[in-house]
Design a binder for these strands. Structure first.
Length: 401
DNA sequence: ATAATTTGACCGAC
DNA sequence: GTCGGTCAAATTAT
């Protein structure tokens, strides 16, 4: 994973207080580096609550493998962490009943019910999720926080453009080429395929499309006939670890270089559960098999699944680290043939990185809670503007293979 | 040391 | 043969 300081590509909302590297806030080394000035903005109790929650989270992290087999303990642990964070958050927001409390209730309710993957889905479908979104959105506007998305500074209007879903595609698709002899090569991915268009950042590096909440690893780039720009091929960073088959292709539009067309393939089987996080899933069926790609999922609003859940819970608000896996190296000359170093391919998206591939939703929960009024570059936008998204189907094109 | 990216080659579909 | 998707060694970044 790349830890690049690409602040421009990360969305965040300026908080009354902030953790410089809050994704590492559970790592003792970094968490202790909190600027005193900022901590002083909170009262001792709040600080201690946060620190206590961090400690609990660290403990949870270290015992995760064991806790994975003890749902009750895991749940209790999560509850306690959540309570601490939420309480701290309430203190930070001055007990604003319209925000913290409601959110608190929702969160605790969800936890008390020992949310599992399916329960998360259910919860997200429920009015609670809507309420949460409303609350968050309300906060967004009310607080007139600064929002930066996709490299642009959106003067707080929060009416930003995240990904503009353009089309969705039925998945059906295709004949999966029954692999033949030689190198077992899978073409024509299984699962759903969706296609969306993503506006490039208005400011900053316009070569990098907004992120979508997942981490991607580039595995190829190719010049495409009829396209001025090469197409970048990405697969889920956790492909190996989670056996996650999700992939995406990113390409700039011929007539509009500032717009990217992103095609998602496959479904994320990684990082889906808010409760059973970093425990390496035994297999792909660890999660629901019916979810679509992130884009799809969010664009259809309905959904469902973990992607949405994890998305909401794992937004990366870090203004400093950006955390994208994208690389500046992608800016460069391209070339025909097999691949190229062009930057047109697009950037990678991501949630967070912790140096390793394993993400810790627990941390993300903290993020979500402390930044409940914030939004990640696209995730929140996805959610808030999903209604505007229009999807269209794309039958099997991408033919070959 | 490990992870991510680059990039020429390989392979299947057409 | 062409095209597009993927592989994988080499390179680069962290």
């Amino acid at each position: 994973m790349v830890h690049q300081h690409r602040s421009l590509t990360k969305a965040y909302i300026q908080l009354p207080f902030k953790f410089p590297h809050h994704h590492n806030m559970f790592k003792s080394k970094t968490s202790q580096k909190e600027p005193k000035q900022q901590l002083e903005a909170m009262d001792e109790t709040t600080v201690s609550l946060i620190l206590h929650a961090c400690k609990l989270a660290r403990d949870l992290e270290s015992n995760l493998p064991n806790l994975a087999n003890q749902p009750n303990l895991l749940s209790n642990s999560l509850d306690e962490i959540t309570r601490n964070f939420v309480t701290a958050r309430e203190r930070v927001y001055g007990q604003d009943p319209s925000t913290s409390s409601s959110l608190h209730n929702m969160l605790t309710l969800a936890h008390q019910q020992q949310i599992g993957t399916s329960q998360v889905q259910e919860w997200l479908r429920s009015s609670y999720a809507q309420q949460a979104m409303d609350i968050i959105q309300t906060q967004l506007v009310a607080d007139q926080k600064e929002v930066k998305i996709g490299g642009c500074i959106d003067d707080g209007d929060a009416e930003v453009k995240g990904l503009q879903a353009m089309d969705i595609v039925s998945a059906s698709d295709t004949n999966i080429a029954s692999s033949s002899s030689q190198r077992p090569r899978r073409r024509k991915d299984e699962g759903l395929i969706s296609k969306i268009t993503v506006p490039a950042p208005r400011i900053g590096n316009t070569e990098i499309p907004p992120e979508d909440g997942f981490t991607w690893r580039k595995y190829g780039q190719k010049e495409i006939m009829g396209s001025r720009f090469p197409r970048g091929y990405y697969r889920c960073t956790h492909q190996k670890l989670y056996n996650c088959p999700a992939k995406k292709q990113v390409q700039r539009l011929n007539n509009d270089p500032l717009t990217f067309e992103v095609m998602y393939r496959g479904e994320h089987t990684c990082h889906m559960s808010a409760t059973a996080p970093s425990v390496p899933p035994p297999s792909a069926e660890h999660h629901n098999a019916t979810q679509g790609s992130l884009a799809q999922t969010l664009a259809t609003t309905t959904t469902t699944d973990p992607p949405t859940a994890s998305l909401w819970l794992s937004m990366d608000f870090n203004p400093i680290r950006g955390g994208s896996g994208s690389s500046s190296r992608m800016i460069g000359g391209d070339r025909g043939g097999g691949g190229g170093g062009s930057g047109d391919g697009a950037g990678t998206s991501t949630t967070t990185r912790y140096g390793k591939e394993v993400d810790f939703p627990v941390v993300d929960w903290a993020d979500a809670m402390f930044n409940s009024g914030s939004s990640s570059s696209n995730s929140m936008d996805f959610i808030f503007h999903s209604a505007e998204n229009k999807w269209e189907s794309e039958d099997k094109k991408n033919g070959g293979q």
